[in-house]
């Protein structure tokens, strides 16, 4: 070791933007301006509220994914898990209508069941990766297949629909507003704030960062690695359950097509938001912005004829890659490879 220190910080004095911190928000702003130019209706109150409401599912799930990814893990099972939990919730609530009637109590049982299933599914993912010592990618690839196939089985290949009257009662959880704020947006905001505090202001959050940064350093520094990692998957499961609770009243049904690709959208939102895929650095605020960006792209394509709506996935893909490329600052540091010393 020598005293040669290589500083990775840009030495340029004066005005320079910290792209890591503000990049996602700037990109979202640019996207919004672009959307407004294409179609002024983009900026209408109804449309903005629509974008935010639709962002809530992926946003809530992605907040959970931020913990998993920051601690060096990955969870591919969230989309299937959401579908499975929706399916079980609907079946149980329908079944309870006979005994408990169309009542808030029935819905509360469904909600409680959802929370329980989410926590258990997360616990299973967590224990299999930590105690079972199987790579998270493999474990959650497996559980992804299991939940997807279970929901298909429960629906007998078709669709599980919530009892019509029950759905009317449950409806406000997705369509309702509190102080002019749609409930899903409120939920996303609360989850984001709690997530931010947990990640940035508690020992647990610091331990997640430490593990993602270097598991061996964390082990030598008295961090309970298995416990913390398992908890990140439980948090992820709870976030999925929460997303499901606001998703079920939206369509009132679950099928094998529910939540398809949500895992990838959630991971994309996390990465666009500036969290590092290999762990050690997580940003809740960025994640929320990332989730909103993904929804915004689809929304803009809906509002314009410029690009076919069928290309939604392609545009999202390009934006994900560009966003991450900008963040990594590769365009700034070109030609500087390796470090001296």
């Amino acid at each position: 070791m020598t005293d040669q220190t290589t500083s990775a910080r840009p030495a340029s004095g004066g005005f320079s933007i910290d792209f890591k911190a503000w990049g996602p928000l700037l990109a979202l702003a640019a996207l919004c301006i672009f959307g407004f130019i294409l179609n002024p209706a983009f900026a209408s109150e109804g449309n903005i509220s629509n974008i935010l409401t639709r962002s809530a599912f992926i946003g809530v799930i992605a907040v959970g994914a931020t913990f998993v990814i920051t601690a060096g893990g990955i969870d591919l099972s969230v989309g299937s898990m959401a579908a499975f939990i929706s399916g079980v919730m609907i079946m149980v609530m329908n079944g309870l209508v006979e005994t408990m009637g169309v009542s808030v109590a029935t819905i509360l049982v469904g909600v409680g069941l959802s929370v329980f299933l989410g926590a258990m599914a997360g616990l299973a993912n967590g224990l299999l990766t930590t105690r079972g010592k199987i790579e998270a990618f493999i474990v959650t690839l497996g559980t992804m297949g299991i939940y997807r196939s279970l929901v298909t089985y429960l629906a007998d290949g078709g669709t599980l629909s919530l009892n019509f009257d029950l759905r009317s009662l449950y409806r406000p959880v997705y369509y309702g507003e509190v102080l002019f704020v749609p409930v899903p947006v409120l939920v996303l905001a609360i989850v984001a704030i709690l997530g931010w505090v947990l990640l940035n202001r508690t020992a647990f959050g610091r331990h997640c960062v430490a593990i993602g940064s270097s598991e061996s350093v964390a082990r030598y520094s008295a961090v309970k690695i298995n416990r913390v990692k398992t908890l990140t998957y439980v948090i992820q499961g709870l976030c999925v359950s929460l997303a499901t609770i606001i998703y079920v009243p939206r369509l009132g049904s679950a099928s094998s097509q529910t939540g398809v690709m949500w895992e990838l959208e959630a991971i994309a939102a996390v990465i666009i938001g500036g969290t590092v895929l290999k762990g050690g650095y997580g940003r809740i605020g960025g994640t929320v912005v990332g989730a909103i960006m993904l929804t915004t792209i689809g929304n803009i394509l809906n509002l314009t004829d410029l690009i076919s709506n069928y290309l939604n996935g392609a545009v999202q893909g390009v934006i994900i890659i560009v966003a991450v490329w900008l963040q990594r600052g590769q365009w700034k540091r070109r030609g500087r490879s390796g470090d001296g010393g």
Binding site: V209, A210, S213, S214, S216, V217, R219, G280, Y281
Partner: peptide, 9 residues
Amino acid sequence: KEKGLLLDL
């Protein structure tokens, strides 16, 4: 470097 410090923090 491997067991002592979180180098990126």
